[in-house]
C-alpha cells in the first residue's frame, strides 16, 4: 500500500473500473459489500460498493444500479468488458457484509449484511465468475483496496489490522 499511487475511489452505492497501474478503493464498508472483479491478463479491475441486496425493493424513480447487488455486478462486468476484459478470465474477491449491531428480535434490515453477501454470490454464480476469496461477516467495518497490477485485495479494519486476500 504505497502512497502517491494512482487511486480510484469508489463511494457508497457506486462502482468504477481501473486499468493499468494503481489501486481502486472504497472506505467504511459496514453491512455494505465491496465486490471486486479482476482480469489478470489485461490488468483491469472493477469495484462496486453495494448497499442493498435486490433492486426489486427499489422505490426510486431513476434506479442507481450501482447500489443493488443484482444490478451492480452485471454492470461492473459490462464496464470491464468494454475495456477489453474477457468474462471467462474474470475472477472475484469481496469483503464487507458485516452485522454492525445486534439486537434481540432483530428485523430483516438488521440482517442486511449477510443478505448482501448472498446476493453478490448468486450474481457471480449466474455470471460464471469464480469467487477466489472473501472476508465477509463479523461485526466490524472494513476499508478495502484492490491492486490492479497483482489483483491482491487489501482489507483494513480497526480490530484486525491489515489483511491480504
Amino acid at each position: 500500500m504505497i502512497d502517491e499511487q494512482h487511486i480510484v475511489k469508489v463511494s457508497m452505492a457506486d462502482l468504477n473500473v481501473i486499468r493499468g497501474q494503481g489501486l481502486i478503493r472504497t472506505t467504511g464498508l459496514g453491512s455494505c459489500v465491496g465486490v471486486t472483479l479482476f482480469d489478470p491478463m489485461l490488468k483491469v479491475a472493477g469495484l462496486a460498493h453495494v448497499m442493498l441486496p435486490s433492486s426489486e425493493i427499489a422505490r426510486e424513480g431513476a434506479l442507481n444500479i450501482a447500489k443493488y447487488a443484482d444490478t451492480a455486478v452485471p454492470e461492473l462486468v459490462r464496464k470491464l468488458l468494454a475495456l477489453g476484459a474477457m468474462q471467462s478470465r474474470l475472477v472475484a474477491k469481496m469483503a464487507g457484509g458485516s452485522q454492525m449491531f445486534t439486537f434481540a428480535g432483530t428485523g430483516d434490515s438488521m440482517r442486511i449484511g449477510p443478505r448482501n453477501v448472498e446476493s453478490c454470490k448468486t450474481m457471480l454464480l449466474q455470471l460464471g465468475i469464480p469467487l477466489l476469496a472473501e472476508d465477509t461477516g463479523g461485526n466490524y467495518g472494513r476499508t478495502i483496496e484492490l491492486d490492479c497490477e497483482t489483483g491482491i485485495l487489501f482489507i483494513r479494519s480497526v480490530q484486525m489490522g491489515i489483511k491480504e486476500l
Partner: peptide
C-alpha cells in the same frame, strides 16, 4: 468503528428511495 460502516446502518431505509 469506522463512521462510514456505522452510519450506513441508518441509511438503509433511504437507500430504497
Amino acid at each position: 468503528d469506522m463512521a462510514g460502516a456505522i452510519l450506513s446502518y441508518g441509511l438503509l431505509q433511504f437507500g430504497e428511495m
